[in-house]
Lab assay of single mutants.
Amino acid sequence: DENEERIRAFALYKGIDPEKARELWERGEINKDDEEKAWREYK
């Protein structure tokens, strides 16, 4: 689903483990601007 892809995109963008990215996502600790930037680059 799209959230999974967004988490993966963010992990790649930040160079972090996707599981770590998922934890940040679930806790609401992902910066929305960074997340959008990562998503645009990923697509």
Rank of each mutant, 00 (worst) to 15 (best):
D1E: 12
D1F: 11
D1H: 11
D1T: 12
E2I: 13
E2M: 13
E2L: 13
E2T: 13
N3K: 15
N3P: 08
N3W: 15
N3T: 15
N3E: 14
N3I: 15
E4L: 10
E4W: 13
E4G: 06
E4T: 08
E4R: 06
E5M: 10
E5I: 07
E5Y: 07
E5S: 06
E5F: 06
E5P: 04
R6M: 09
R6K: 09
R6W: 12
I7Y: 05
I7P: 00
I7D: 01
I7G: 00
R8F: 14
R8P: 00
A9W: 10
A9L: 07
A9G: 01
A9T: 02
A9Q: 05
A9R: 07
F10K: 01
F10I: 15
F10V: 12
F10P: 00
A11S: 05
A11G: 03
L12E: 10
L12K: 13
L12G: 03
L12A: 13
L12I: 13
L12C: 15
L12F: 11
L12R: 11
Y13I: 04
Y13N: 02
Y13P: 00
K14V: 12
K14A: 14
K14H: 12
K14N: 08
K14P: 00
K14W: 15
G15E: 04
G15V: 02
G15Q: 08
G15Y: 01
G15N: 10
I16E: 00
I16S: 00
I16G: 00
D17Y: 03
D17R: 07
P18M: 15
P18A: 10
P18N: 11
E19Q: 12
E19P: 04
E19M: 12
E19D: 13
E19L: 11
K20L: 14
K20H: 12
K20T: 14
A21D: 00
A21L: 02
R22N: 01
R22D: 00
E23I: 11
E23M: 09
E23A: 10
L24F: 05
W25D: 00
W25S: 02
W25M: 07
W25A: 03
W25K: 03
E26P: 00
R27S: 11
R27W: 05
R27T: 08
R27N: 12
R27M: 09
G28K: 04
G28V: 01
E29K: 06
E29I: 07
E29A: 10
E29S: 06
I30N: 02
I30W: 10
I30G: 02
I30H: 03
N31A: 11
N31G: 09
K32A: 13
K32W: 14
K32S: 11
K32I: 11
D33G: 08
D33I: 09
D34R: 01
D34E: 15
E35I: 15
E35T: 10
E35V: 15
E35A: 15
E35G: 06
E35W: 15
E36H: 05
K37Y: 07
K37I: 11
A38I: 06
A38L: 04
A38P: 02
A38T: 03
W39N: 02
W39H: 03
W39G: 02
R40V: 09
R40N: 13
R40H: 12
E41R: 09
E41H: 12
E41P: 02
E41I: 11
E41C: 15
E41F: 13
E41Y: 14
Y42P: 03
Y42W: 13
Y42Q: 03
Y42K: 03
Y42C: 08
Y42E: 03
Y42V: 04
K43N: 12
K43L: 14
K43V: 13
K43F: 12
